[in-house]
Amino acid sequence: MTRRVNRISPFNITSLALGLAFLYLPIVILVIYSFNASRLVTVWGGWSLRWYTEFFNDRAMLDAAWMSLRVAAVSATVATLLGTLAAIGLARGERFKGRSLFSGMLYAPLVMPEVISGLSLLLLFVALSAERGFWTVTLAHTTLTMCFVTVVVQSRLASIDRSLEEAAMDLGCDPVRAFLSVTLPLIVPAIVAGWMLAFTLSLDDVVIASFTTGPGSATLPIRIYSEVRLGVKPQINAICTMVIALIAVVIVIASFASKLSSSQGESAAPL
């Protein structure tokens, strides 16, 4: 079927261009100013990498960055595993007892204000008298981000033709084999996208981490946040630029990986 060719009207182009400029300009400005030689964040003093070297000499910042990376990697991996299993249960489990509670618990955190999630998890950790630090933050992030993984993987599963699984069973696979040999390869791009999303969400979070971490184990966003509260500093521009670069690299690698793993026409949406 051929879809009618949409005409490009000036109004449409303008609104799109303005919208995209609004979305991108602030980030571009931030990146450019991270290379500013001047200490004054608003005066352009020529190109320089001094704020980057300053970051690499800042012990506390480096520790926070390392903590954040570890939390993001571990929580994203666990969240991807759990989220994928949850998606399978929702997409293929048909009706079962407690299904609506299950989907409710998985969908609510997507829009739930972080202050509530953070506070409630903290109260749980206190009640369990768990020592707060790396593991509590990782647990909290896993809980939040697995819901996003579930949504991404579930929508991919829903788009897969069920007759593929039936064909696999017809050709001699039991249900588990049919899933592993046919469905799983097809949802790999969504699983990869889910991991990326979980990783970046974890790397981004201030509120939940503030509630669930303990003294002496601040994550990078917590440190950035406390610095930002005091005003703009060129070093923060540099750190933010590096975080953006890291996320860009993760996205590029992951989209390559998912392209390689599946050369089928449809590629997973990044959300």
Binding site: D161, S163, L164, A167, L171, V182, S262, Q264, G265
Partner: peptide, 18 residues
């Protein structure tokens, strides 16, 4: 189905895309 000596050709073919 996986233990039956019959096979089916699907309407939309259900070819494994990968």
């Amino acid at each position: 189905p996986h233990l039956r000596p019959v096979n089916m050709m699907f309407q939309n073919y259900a070819l494994f895309p990968h």
